[in-house]
Structures are given as structure tokens and as C-alpha cells.
Design a protein around this nucleic acid. Structure first.
Lengths: 115, 115
DNA sequence: CATATGAGCAACCTCCGAGTTGCATATTAG
DNA sequence: CTAATATGCAACTCGGAGGTTGCTCATATG
């Protein structure tokens, strides 16, 4: 593997790790589930039904926003958060590439055994 | 949403969050890339080419193993780690469901606008 | 047997993530 | 104007993740 290629894939790895980290929390997964299935919602709305503080939910929303999974629009005195599918689609593609590579390994192994 | 259904999905969320957390690290993503593209490798082999200690790599491998992404087989004095695609496929399906739900929301919105 | 190699275990340190509380600010409602 | 609502900001605690060092154990190898 070339030096440049290594650096590029390292940068991609860093980015993917960041998005994975944003999803590595039960509360944030719950927020994603809520937001991907409906209209944009305010922080107060998203806090309702949770046992956590509004500030805790706010922090989680900022983490999701930094990862690009969600974006917020200020509307009057409330800021509404909406889902953005792009980062999750990137992750899905990444997981697909990993699976595909593994399938190639398996098929090569099968060929070796059969030969 | 029923109480039981809520608990079930909460348990699934917990599990998904755990697997996401296992992928939320650059070093572990690198290990996954290495292992999904080749034969099982020993800890010493996986440590070579990294600036980290063997114990650090060992800890990362244990994290991946707890998430089911990797499994180890002791062979003589070395333990070989191999890739397991099942957990990543679960994540891929999960991300697919989220995207599908979002697409439904968009199409409903479009219908409303057109009507 | 003696030695080198691969790995496990435990203690320790540092830093960040998650959550809380308290207060300040802006906007809507009456 | 005044009060209530929605949010932002800062400081603090607490626990766990990531990493290291040092030692021990097991297994090849000469």
C-alpha cells in the first residue's frame, strides 16, 4: 500500500470512527429513531418522555449534529432538529465494502480447497 | 407503543450501541480492515506495523471480540483472531431500516405538498 | 535443559464522555 | 410590562476507555 493511499484511508477511518462514535450511545440511537421517523422537533419535545435533563439531551443532539447525522434550524425561541441520512448511508457503504472483502476472502479460500 | 415492545427495542438499541461503540475507534477499524481482508492473525502479527504496545492491541481485540466482530482461537502458544461478518451485517440492516423510514417520511411529505 | 518468543494479568495514569446544577438570555403569551 | 417558556453557557462530579509498564506463565526451539 502506498504512503498516500495509507494516509487517505487513515483520514477516512478517522471520519468513520467519529460517526460510529456518535451512534455508540443508547440515548442518541433513540433520538435518531425519533427524528428519522417524523418531523423536526425542538429540544423540549425531544426531552419529554426521557428521564434525562434537557441539557443532557442538548449535548447528545450537538454530538449528532457534529457528526452530520442531524441538523438544527433556529425558529423563533426554539431550535428544531431534523434528520440527515447522508452520514448513515456512508457507514452503510463502508460496512458493505467490508462484507464484500470478506466474501472475496471466503471464495478464494473455497477455490483453494476445491483445487 | 406497548411496554413490551418498548423494552424489546430498548434492548436492541443497547446491543446496536455496543457494536457501534466497538467500531468507534480508529485503531479497531484498522484491525477490522486487516482481518476482514485476509487470514486469521496472531496478536504479535497485528501489533507489527503499529506504534502501539502489544497490550493495547490486545485490549482492542478483546473489545472487538466482546462485540462479536472477531473471534479468537488458541493455536499453540499464539491466539489467532479471525473476522466474523454477522454483527456488521446486523448494523447494515439497522442503517437500512433507518434510511427506509426516512424515505417514507419524505414521500409522505411530498404527497402532502402535491395534494 | 536453557532460552527465546507469544501471550495473559494487574496496577497505574490520564483524559474524555455523560450527566447534573445553576444562572443568564431571548422570545412568546397574557 | 410581566411572567412563562425555550434555549445557551459554564463549572463540577464521576466513571470508564485508552494506553503504558512490569511481571508471570506457557510453548517452541536450539
Amino acid at each position: 500500500m502506498s504512503r498516500v493511499g495509507s494516509d487517505l484511508s487513515a483520514a477516512k477511518r478517522r471520519h468513520h470512527a467519529a460517526v460510529f462514535a456518535a451512534l455508540a450511545d443508547e440515548t442518541r440511537l433513540s433520538l435518531v429513531t425519533t427524528l428519522c421517523g417524523g418531523e423536526p422537533r425542538s429540544i423540549a419535545q425531544l426531552t419529554g418522555g426521557s428521564r434525562m435533563t434537557r441539557q443532557a439531551i442538548t449535548k447528545h443532539l450537538r454530538v449528532l449534529e457534529c457528526a452530520g447525522i442531524v441538523h438544527s434550524v433556529r425558529s423563533g425561541r426554539e431550535s428544531r432538529f431534523a434528520f440527515d441520512p447522508a452520514p448513515l448511508n456512508e457507514l452503510k457503504e463502508y460496512l458493505g465494502r467490508v462484507s464484500a472483502q470478506w466474501d472475496q476472502v471466503l471464495s478464494r479460500l473455497k477455490t483453494l480447497v476445491e483445487s
